[in-house]
C-alpha cells in the first residue's frame, strides 16, 4: 500500500515541480531510471517469491543506479559512450523482461 502511494507521490512531485535536469546529470538519468526499473521489478518478483528483503532491495536499487551511471561515464571517457549505453539498456531490458515474466506467472499463474 505505502509502496504504491510512494510511487504515485513521486510521479506527482515530478509533474508539479517540473524540475530541469542538470547538464552533468543529463546523460546518466535515462540509464539510471532504467536500472532502477530493473531493481524494482526484481524486488517485486522477490516479493512474490516470498524472499523479499528491504535491505537487499535498497542495496540493489542503489548499486544498479550507480553501476549504470558509472558504465555510461566510463564509456563517455573511453569514447564509446553511445554504444555502451545501448548495451546497458539491452541487458537491463532483458532482465526486466525475464522479471516481468516471472511476476506474470505468479499473478496470473500463466
Amino acid at each position: 500500500m505505502i509502496a504504491a502511494v510512494g510511487l504515485l507521490l513521486g510521479v506527482l512531485l515530478g509533474i508539479f515541480l517540473q524540475p530541469t535536469v542538470p547538464v552533468w546529470l543529463d546523460p546518466y538519468l535515462p540509464i539510471a531510471v532504467v536500472a532502477a526499473l530493473d531493481a524494482v521489478f526484481g524486488a517485486l518478483r522477490a516479493f512474490l517469491d516470498g524472499i523479499f528483503d528491504d535491505k537487499v532491495f535498497v542495496v540493489s536499487f542503489v548499486s544498479n543506479v550507480l553501476i549504470a551511471a558509472v558504465i555510461v561515464y566510463l564509456g563517455d571517457k573511453l569514447g564509446v559512450g553511445g554504444q555502451l549505453s545501448t548495451g546497458v539498456i539491452v541487458v537491463l531490458g532483458i532482465r526486466i523482461f525475464s522479471n516481468v515474466a516471472a511476476i506474470r506467472r505468479h499473478i496470473f499463474h500463466a
Partner: peptide, 12 residues
C-alpha cells in the same frame, strides 16, 4: 520501497 519508488517515479 515507497521511498525508492518515489525517487524512481520522480526521476522517470
Amino acid at each position: 520501497a515507497a521511498v525508492l519508488l518515489a525517487v524512481l517515479g520522480f526521476a522517470a
